[in-house]
Structures are given as structure tokens and as C-alpha cells.
Design a protein around this nucleic acid. Sequence first.
DNA 1: TAGTGGTCTAGACCACGAC
DNA 2: TCGTGGTCTAGACCACTAC
Lengths: 265, 265
Amino acid sequence: MRRGSVGVGKAGISGGDQSRTMAGTAPDGDGLGMKPLYRQVRDTLIRRMVDGVWAPGEPLPSEMQLAAELGVSQGTVRKALDEMAAENLVVRRQGRGTFVARHDEDRILFQFFKLVPNDGVRRFPDSRVLSIGKAKASAAECAALDLVRGSRVVRIRRVRLLDGAPLLVETLSLPEALFPGLTDMEIPNNLYGLYSARYGITVARAREKLKAVAAPADDAAALGVAPGTPALLIDRLGFSLDQVPVEWRVSLCLTHQAHYLSDLT
Amino acid sequence: MRRGSVGVGKAGISGGDQSRTMAGTAPDGDGLGMKPLYRQVRDTLIRRMVDGVWAPGEPLPSEMQLAAELGVSQGTVRKALDEMAAENLVVRRQGRGTFVARHDEDRILFQFFKLVPNDGVRRFPDSRVLSIGKAKASAAECAALDLVRGSRVVRIRRVRLLDGAPLLVETLSLPEALFPGLTDMEIPNNLYGLYSARYGITVARAREKLKAVAAPADDAAALGVAPGTPALLIDRLGFSLDQVPVEWRVSLCLTHQAHYLSDLT
DNA sequence: TAGTGGTCTAGACCACGAC
DNA sequence: TCGTGGTCTAGACCACTAC
């Protein structure tokens, strides 16, 4: 019946010290900093994922093992894991176990890629890199990625094609400090998989701002349309597991053959 | 330790007969039609909301009361209600109770209105109705709203303004059978509130398709911009609690002063 | 057969809100 | 003070997967 903070146990890899307080709400003079136990468990597990204790695709310990190690009941671990499953951080499969979510094509297609062909059949567009390089971050990049002035970024510009026809042209900016050597790598179609595999960085969440604009001359040329053609401008900021902005992506999309699909739930 | 279907109890207002089978998965020869108990409870409660047993804003019976009435444990009712809260169908407040969600301005603003002014401060645009009337449904309207040919619809066309400047012009189509007499009513800014209050119809979910287009002459005139100005075309279909399409709304939006905000979670 | 997550139950204590 | 939902626990049985 021990209540209180989540135990550090044996495998307390990280600082292992974000644990605090009691369940419910602080009965002692703590004031504000308390969280329910299941949320402390969740945060502990996410911290371990950030620290690479379990890689994407790998199984977590079973509910019973985690409960024993952390000194809480199975039900509390279960509630933490259910919440993480709802956030697409883990995948649970009856009879098999709970696994760290991977950035496979299906996940990208349903969670992060909202452009759907008019026929309704989701598919992944091909990519063609136009340029890649390093530079000092612009003021806009510093603001978007929360960088100090003078930081350096990696910039990638590429065209993506659907069924062979240009769909969008986009420019990505990434903090070079987080992605060293990226410019020397082959750039795959699925970038999030690369971030995860090479740098241990998981894009867990993104925020997109959309506007309709007239395509500027250079983008129009890359897309093979007349300058001034109406296009969808998508400004996306991707956040890592620990809520740090890690990728800024500005895409200019043609919406003749596809549309942006948004579910208001 | 009774297991099985959700009891009809005493207050089985509706058909009260969608109950089936056992928890887990059909151990008998049922085949496929089974659902977990907590989902049967959820469906029962939604059915009652559809039938108007509880109006928006009203409290549901307490967990204990529902559990006793339906013949399940409090934990099962709790799981059903938690799921409904996650879907924005009910609002739970500690110490007060569980309430049927209302279409108040806040909910609309966060769940259904994704256009955010560039300053980031969400606010509700004013409306000005341009026309309202009844007509035989077009082929497109029949397809969108799942109507039989020959059905009649109510059409509303209006402009919406943000801080006094035109933001969008939109055309709504509604099945007249579901909204009799709508054309004789005053059209408020918050239409979903009207659907709920006057017709007992709750828009629980919507699906939006976005494209970038050049504004046609008539829409451009209504918005006070030059024809051909790039604009965001939003095609929205709204679904009721029981998953029936009840409103088709096509909006043409200027995105100079605002953007469409989408969270990829 | 053993172990996993999925479901269901029962009961405890807590914070919150209305009285 | 009482009733509400929020949290936590403990234990049962189930279906699914791997061995």
C-alpha cells in the first residue's frame, strides 16, 4: 500500500529524479508540482524512450514487470501505457506485448501526411532532392526552432511526386547540432525514419499552419506550373518526444490531384 | 458475477435492444457481433442522447446509478464515460457530475473552427446571411448528404467577418427533412447550437477536405477581393451522434489575416 | 503451456463542489 | 456533511501469441 513517488528502482538510467509527491493532489505542503501516479509512470517511460533505453520497434517490459520495478500496481502502469498508446507513442498487441512505436510508412501516412489523392487511396509520394546544405540559421529559422542567434541549420529542398506528377516542393530546416553529418547522408523518402534510426530522435507530434497563396516563380518552376497558380502553403513544426522543436518544414502543394484531409473529432 | 448483455433495467427508454453477447469475445457461436461491455454501455448512453433522454448541458446520472441500472460495475461505466469524454460527447467535472456536451462557443472554437487569426488568439467571426432558401437537392448534395434523388435541402449562403473584414463566404446544405422550418428562423452565428436547441441534432464529428483555388468572380465579390485571388476551399461534412451526415458546408476562405491550424497528434 | 495484453469487478481513499 | 468524479489497488477470467 506504499504510495508516493515512482521508485527509481534499479534501471534508473536517466536523472531518474523527476518523481515527486503523492497521488491525487498534494496533501502535504507541496503546492503545485504534483501529478497523478500514472502520469509519473508515463513520464518515466517517455524519459527512457528519449534516452534510448528501448529503441523503436522493441518491446517494453510487461505490465507486471514495470509495475514491480516502479513500485505501483499493474492498473496504474496500464493506465499510463493506454495513454501512451492513444498518443501513438507505443503500440499494444494482445498476446505479444507493448512496443515502442516506429515511424513506418503506415504511421507517417495516417498521422503525419494529410494530403490524400482525390481517389481517397492514401499513398506515399516519391521524393527528389533539389539541394541540401548547411547555413547560419535565418531569423525565421531561429524563431521557429527556438535556436539562439548564430546557430547553424541543415537545409533540404526537395520535390515530391504523386504518380509521377509533381505534388509539392518543400524546404526543411533542422538544427545542425541535433543532426550532425546529415548533409553527407543519402536522404530517404521517409525522413522521420532516418531521424529515428540515425539520431535517435523521434518526431512525436507536429503542428501545421495552412494558407492559400499564389505560387512564386521558383516554386512554380519546380512544380511545372505557371507562376501565380493557387497553392496550399503548409508550415509544419515537428516536436520530439520531449517537446523540443526539431524540424521546420514549409511545403507548397498543388491541390489538383489531392486534398488536405482533416478530421474534426 | 453476472456477465452478459447490458440490462434494459427500468428506464430502457429507446428500443433498448441493441444489447448483445458477452464480454471479451464471443465464447459462444455468436461469430462477430460482440462488443466489450463498456462499449455496449457507451452505445446505450449515446442512443439515449440521440433520443433526447438527456439534453445538452444536463447531467447524466452518477456512475453508481448508471452501474446499478445497467447491471455492470462502476469501473465499466467509468471506462465508457471516459471514452465519451475523449470524444467530446460529455464533459466530466470532479465534484459536480458528468454532463452532455454543449455546442457552446468554446467547443466550436476549438473543435470545429480551425481558422486562427495570425496573432494566435482564437475568436469567433461575425456572420452575415446573403441568402437562405429551399430547393431540390443537386446531385452533389445528394452524394454528400447521402440523400435519395428528389430530396429537398435548405441552402444558406453567408459571409463571415473577422474584426470587420471579410474572412470567408460559405454555402451550407442541410436535409430539409431533418430541419423543417429552418428557413423561417433567424440564423444565429453559432449554427450548431441552433441545430441542437431547435432540432435535437448534435454535430458530433466532421471531416474537412482542403484545397487551394482561385476565387471565382461571385465569391471574390462577396469577399471584396479581386477574382482569381488564391483562397482556401474547405469542404466540410458534419455527422450527427449516430454518424448520419447532417450538414454539408463549402467555405471559401481568405488566408491573409488567418490560417488553418491543424495538430498532428 | 506459459505469458501477454484486454476486460471486468470490488473496494479503498482522495479532492472538489454544493449544501 | 454528503455525493461526485479522480486515483489507486488487487484479483479474476478471457483471448491471443509464441513455444
